[in-house]
Amino acid sequence: MLAIQTQLFEAKDVRFGPIDHETHPEVESKWTHDAEFMRLMELKPIRPLSPAMVKKQYEAIEKEMEEDKNLYYFTIQTKEENKFIGKALIEWIDWTNGNGFLRLGIGASEFRRLGLGSQALSMLLRFAFDELNLYRVTAVVPAYNEGAIKLFQKFGFMEEVRRRKAIHRDNEFWDLVSFGLLNAEWREQVTGQG
C-alpha cells in the first residue's frame, strides 16, 4: 500500500534536512577537530578543516548530487531546537544493479548514545528501499567501530566481507568489515512481509 502520508524525513526526535551553507560549516569544522569521531567516520588520513574548507566540501557534495545523481546527502537535525547534529548519506549508487553504500554519524558528542543514530538509520533505510527502490545497501565499517557494528546488526545487516588487516591504526591492524541488507529483508522486518 502507498504510504505517502508517512513523512520520509521525520522521525521521533530527529529529522533530515538539507545543507545550510551559512550555519553548518562552523559546526562541522568543530567536529573535524574531534580526532576520535573522525577516525570512526573516515578511513582516509584525517585532518582538521576550517569552516571555509567545509563550505567547499558542501559545494562539491551538492555538485555531485546534481551532476552524477548517485549521491543522496542529508543533515540530521533535532526536532526540538533544529540543531545540526550529524549527517546521513547514500553514496556510490549503482542504478543498473540497484545498490548503494550507507554512511551516517552523529558529530555533536552530547547527542551520541541517545538512540538518534538509530532513528536516522531507520529513515535512511526507508529512503533507500521505498524511495530509491534499491535492491540492497552496504555499510563498510572498520572492526574497531563497535558502536556502528552493533547498530547495523540491530537493523538486521549481515556481515558479508571481511578484508583482513585492511586498516592500520596506531600500529595495530584491523579488519574492514562490509555489512549488507537486502530490500526484502528490511521489508520483512518493518511489515512482517517479505
Binding site: T96, N97, G98, N99, Y135, R136, T138, M158, E159, E160, V161, R162, R163, R164, S178, G180, L182
Partner: peptide
C-alpha cells in the same frame, strides 16, 4: 574474504 549477496543483476 567474502560474498556480497545479489550485488548485480
Amino acid at each position: 574474504e567474502g560474498r556480497v549477496r545479489g550485488e548485480g543483476i
